[in-house]
């Protein structure tokens, strides 16, 4: 583990340790009650998922056209984090829905889009796991298609929903709430960077082990 990873990890832990305090101090939202606090977890998670998914798509594109192994390491690490943050988003989403709409699952445009994006990246990981040799390139093609697909998913799901309009409870973000929300977002960013550092390092080492294994066979 390199030095900057330690620093990042320390910072992430510090941010996470302070987050509950800030969230506790944020104003109490009357319609949603305590459940509104999920929001500080849910929205940053969803944002992370989207950004990392875009990053995975870009890295896959770089890998496909330049064949640089590092791009593939980043793409794979990113895909795993998309699934991780996606899981957070999709667990907290229904909790919110239960309170706001009275049902566990609501075909809300953003939640549905998140579910689809999450599915695409699980499919990507399945391909990487079970596709056999050459699945790195196939995965890269898949991730590139996922990247191009994001706007289509959003637009189609959105219009699919708004044809049957429904009132939604979207909290307006008053500044005292925005502060803790971005604080939590920063915590997630730091955590994501730590995970990236570790996972990419691990992939690099795996590649080195492969290379050494091949070299050892040389003799």
């Amino acid at each position: 583990m390199r030095k900057y990873t330690h620093i990042l990890l320390g910072a992430a832990l510090l941010v996470f340790a302070l987050a509950p305090v800030l969230i506790h101090r944020a104003p109490y939202e009357s319609t949603m009650g305590l459940v509104q606090k999920i929001f500080y977890f849910h929205l940053p998670g969803a944002l992370m998922m989207l950004f990392i998914a875009l990053f995975a798509g870009v890295m896959s594109g770089i890998f496909l056209f330049t064949k640089k192994p590092w791009a593939d390491h980043y793409a794979l690490a990113a895909a795993e984090q998309v699934v991780l943050f996606g899981a957070m988003t999709l667990v907290t989403g229904p909790l919110w829905a239960r309170k706001a709409w009275g049902v566990w699952w609501e075909w809300d445009a953003r939640l549905t889009s998140s579910l689809l994006l999450w599915m695409i990246f699980i499919a990507y990981l399945l391909l990487r796991r079970f596709g056999g040799p050459g699945s790195d390139k196939l995965g890269a093609g898949m991730a590139l298609f996922a990247l191009a697909n994001v706007p289509f998913i959003y637009v189609s799901v959105n219009y699919w929903r708004t044809l049957h309009p429904k009132t939604t409870v979207v909290p307006n973000l008053v500044p005292p709430m925005a502060g803790p929300m971005w604080w939590a977002f920063a915590g997630f960013v730091l955590m994501s960077l730590v995970l990236f550092a570790l996972r990419v390092q691990q992939e690099e080492q795996r590649a080195r082990v492969e290379a050494l294994y091949l070299a050892a066979n040389e003799g």
Binding site: P133, E210, Y213, L214, N217, E218
Partner: peptide, 11 residues
């Protein structure tokens, strides 16, 4: 040329 750890050709 190698496929993962399997080496099909070398030098």
């Amino acid at each position: 040329r190698h496929y993962g750890r399997r080496k099909a050709l070398s030098q």
